[in-house]
Simulated assay, not measured.
Amino acid sequence: MRQRDAERTRAALLSAAQTLFSTRGFANTGVRDVAELAGVNSSLVSRYFGSKQGLYRETLERVLDITPMLEGDRRRFGEKVVSIFLGVEDAPGPLMMLILSAADPEAHATSVELLQKKAIEPLARWLGPPDADGRAARLNILWGGFLMSWRLLPLPQLAEVRHSSTRRWLEATIQAIVDEGET
């Protein structure tokens, strides 16, 4: 019974941390805030994660996972990725955590490290030669720019992106970067 409670407590803390880190940022989120949202004692953050930084790392590691995007038909990757992006409503996610971590040097370093490890490197392996690292970086730049312009600093021109020429352009551009490796 205790193990199940510990797992439930960890899950509640991770969920609360994801919400707060992606809405307030690392610097503006306190351990007490996370514990309060999770409905547990703040000392449990130290017990399970060692520190706020440890909680941030584990939370980001959990939510920053592109492997589901890499499954399926490679020839339809652009469509799949755009559908995933457009299908996610305002759920707290890794992009906001990454952006809002920039104010804290340690959290920022963790963000850069995990973005490389959990997104760029797996994407580069999946893409394969030629220039897998460069293509993975270009895709990340494209995705980040699109998501920032659509979600964080919404451009009015992207309000109807679900059914627009912008969507088709984004799908085609993503696919073109993927297809650079095809002979």
Rank of each mutant, 00 (worst) to 15 (best):
R2L: 08
Q3G: 04
E7C: 10
A12R: 15
A12V: 04
L14M: 12
S15G: 15
A17V: 09
T19V: 05
T23V: 14
T23K: 08
G25C: 06
F26H: 08
A27G: 12
A27H: 06
N28W: 05
T29V: 10
G39E: 04
N41R: 12
S43P: 00
L44A: 02
V45R: 03
S46V: 04
R47V: 09
Y48G: 07
G50D: 00
S51M: 08
K52M: 10
K52E: 07
R57W: 10
E58D: 11
L60H: 05
T67E: 11
G72R: 03
G72Y: 03
F77R: 10
E79R: 14
K80A: 14
L86N: 07
E89M: 11
E89Q: 14
E89K: 15
E89A: 13
E89R: 15
D90Q: 13
A91Q: 13
P92K: 06
P92Y: 09
P94D: 10
L100N: 00
A103M: 00
A107L: 09
A109K: 14
A109N: 05
T110W: 06
S111L: 02
V112R: 03
E113M: 10
L114H: 01
L114W: 01
L115I: 03
Q116S: 12
E121I: 15
L123T: 15
R125H: 06
L127M: 08
G128W: 01
D133F: 02
G134S: 06
A136N: 07
A137L: 14
A137K: 14
A137P: 00
W143N: 05
G145Q: 06
L147V: 11
R151I: 07
L153I: 12
L153M: 12
L155P: 02
L158I: 08
A159K: 14
A159C: 05
E160D: 15
V161N: 03
T166C: 06
R168C: 06
W169I: 05
E180S: 10
T183R: 07
